[in-house]
């Protein structure tokens, strides 16, 4: 099938754009660095709370969360590029070519995954420079990056689907802002859910961002990873990703009805 070739060719277009503006990656790293440096320093004493996971510094604890959040934020804004392409007629140009429809979104998501992986690696290195330990080793890091990638895929597909339906930057920004922060704070990004109010812990059970953070953290930080947790959460994330991909495909059809 030429689905894979098309996706790769589409992805190359975005990857080239990324290489031409590498400072963009730096810009997207400002936020995670603030989390790591400022939060990591400011709330250092959290680790002394009763019930805090033993032997973990606050900074070590938040690194997986910071990586998943960065992935989830950059994927969430992915629809902006789609709106740009719609306005410039580029999507219509692709639609009248024999290129497979799915490659139009998947090419974007593939290049988005590359961004996510680069950002994750930078955060991991920064954390390590600041003294964090990763008992999960190389496997743990790879798993964390893959998990962040799946979250990115799901929210990227969602953001692109929304872009196809609403086609206005302002509306997409509003909707994403409405989603991004709440989903971040309704998750175990900064404190273990055992220390959070019950209602937050309950809501977090249904939050894909939380699934990714818990699984990624166990893979990276636990000296004996909880494989049951990692596998079930990753499975849930895959289901979430598939649902979002289906949504994006439907959004394409609705887009074509209004052209």
């Amino acid at each position: 099938m030429n689905v894979f070739a098309d996706t790769w060719h589409m992805a190359q277009r975005h990857i080239r754009a990324l290489i031409r503006q590498p400072w963009w990656i730096a810009v997207t790293l400002v936020q995670p660095i603030i989390w790591l440096v400022l939060f990591g320093g400011l709330f250092k004493n959290m680790a002394e709370l009763p019930g805090w996971p033993e032997g973990l510094s606050f900074r070590e604890f938040i690194i997986p969360g910071v990586i998943v959040m960065t992935a989830f934020f950059s994927a969430g804004w992915g629809g902006m590029g789609m709106i740009d392409d719609i306005k410039r007629g580029i999507i219509d140009r692709f639609l009248v070519s024999p290129a497979s429809r799915s490659s139009i979104i998947n090419g974007r998501l593939l290049s988005g995954f590359l961004t996510i992986a680069i950002q994750a690696l930078i955060v991991l290195v920064l954390g390590w420079l600041m003294g964090a330990h990763y008992p999960g080793g190389a496997l743990g890091m790879v798993l964390l990056i893959v998990i962040a990638g799946i979250v990115g895929f799901g929210f990227g597909a969602f953001s692109n689907g929304l872009a196809l339906i609403i086609r206005k930057e302002e509306s997409l920004i509003a909707m994403m802002q409405f989603l991004l922060l709440p989903l971040t704070f309704l998750a175990a990004a900064f404190i273990p859910l055992t220390l959070a109010p019950d209602w937050i812990a309950n809501v977090a059970k249904f939050n894909p961002v939380n699934w990714a953070i818990e699984a990624g953290r166990s893979a990276l930080i636990d000296s004996s990873p909880d494989w049951n947790l990692i596998l079930t959460r990753t499975g849930l994330l895959l289901v979430f990703g598939a649902l979002m991909a289906a949504f994006a495909t439907r959004a394409f059809r609705s887009y074509q009805r209004t052209v």
Partner: peptide, 8 residues
């Protein structure tokens, strides 16, 4: 090039 690639 991309345009050509999309047509195989």
């Amino acid at each position: 090039r991309l345009q050509g690639q999309l047509y195989g």
